[in-house]
Write a protein that binds this DNA or RNA. Structure first.
Lengths: 204, 204
DNA sequence: CCTTCAGCTTGACATCGTGTCAATTGACAT
DNA sequence: ATGTCAATTGACACGATGTCAAGCTGAAGG
């Protein structure tokens, strides 16, 4: 349970990411991780209390590697509301496929594990703040569609950007990432930007 | 494994629906069901090969009770494309909360059980046909938004109507069923009906 | 009255993955 | 030498699913 940056702890996290990266989604067992890390299954529990805690720690490990913080920066720099909305949608949409292999196991644990559920919910809540900021930028520019309050628009945008929808479109519907991004951006504009359809038509 | 309509088989299915109705979502074990049905856990396996098969059979049992077939009928009777779209969205949206307690366990089994995954996917595929019919009705009336092909619009509508989105809006966002329906209808119009925003504004 | 048979019970057992524990080893530091 | 720390070994508990063999019971049919 040593919370320090022990070498072994790092090896465990690395092993976990590797296995997930290789596509062994939900069927990554503690024993698999241990074997890959070159230690005993039991030894993993010397560093992580349980599977959920390990997966949560792993997501933070991935955050570092993927420089997650820096990804949403461009959207904060945007001048106009429309630009900000676009940039945010684009940044998040590009981020999903990268983190998906690592996020999925955590999502799958949600129903059975409270800690996992909370950890994922927290991340989604953070993402919601980005949605809210984008919607507020529209409101400030007086171009938020009259049909929605800031709160409702934020919830809708937040919902549309859920990983499950990306999953559904790219897997069940067979869409390419490009098609996903393009359509999501257009939808979001049409829905939330005043005269969004006209604007996007003009620019096209 | 008697596939006939034995009395016991019926009692098992009834017991399952009761337990799910009472809110014991994922933690409905085979032993719980057996106890409620007044038989042994092992006896359940005389009627259903495994948990997945039982849950799948249960959904059909619920279909009968809820008269699922009849629910989408009104939308087929609609004259105009817009009416049809509206009616379909409304019918499905009203249906979700009713079946949710029964559908959820099946959805949860998906990741681990192939049969469960297929059963649920099949139901969603059926639902997609309704989406496609509604979009085609718009196309026939020449009021399908120019921004989408029939296929893309169908996929998007299908995605928006997924149970996961209802779940997110009513649970994570705390929306009422009424708010969900209202917003979904408006979004769908805005996105897919030519000048949908103008039309909805006029009617409001 | 006796047999047969289906449907259920009883009790035991296998499997799989998670999580726990006690005793031990090996290395390194004081 | 002694202590400490990380890891190993081997064993075990649990919870849930699924399986199996043997026994019970009641109703139908000779």
């Amino acid at each position: 349970m040593s919370s320090e940056n022990s070498e072994t702890r790092r090896r465990i996290l690395q092993a976990t990411t590797e296995l997930l990266q290789e596509g062994h989604g939900a069927d990554v067992r503690m024993s698999d991780i241990a074997r890959r890390a070159g230690i005993t299954r039991q030894a993993v529990y010397l560093h992580f209390a349980n599977r959920a805690e390990l997966l949560i720690a792993m997501t933070f490990y991935v955050d570092e590697i993927k420089r997650s913080n820096e990804r949403l920066a461009p959207s904060r720099a945007a001048r106009t509301g429309t630009e900000r909305l676009d940039a945010y949608v684009e940044a998040w949409a590009a981020y999903i496929p990268e983190i998906y292999p690592f996020a999925k196991p955590l999502m799958l644990m949600g129903p059975t594990d409270e800690a996992a559920r909370c950890a994922w919910a927290q991340r989604m809540q953070d993402m919601r703040e980005g949605c809210e900021a984008a919607i507020q930028a529209l409101e400030r520019d007086r171009i938020l569609s009259a049909e929605h309050t800031v709160d409702a628009a934020t919830d809708l945008l937040w919902t549309m950007m859920q990983v499950e929808n990306w999953e559904h479109l790219t897997q069940a519907c067979g869409w390419s990432q490009a098609k996903y991004v393009e359509n999501l951006k257009r939808m979001v504009r049409t829905l939330f930007v005043l005269d969004g359809s006209i604007r996007s038509a003009r620019e096209a």
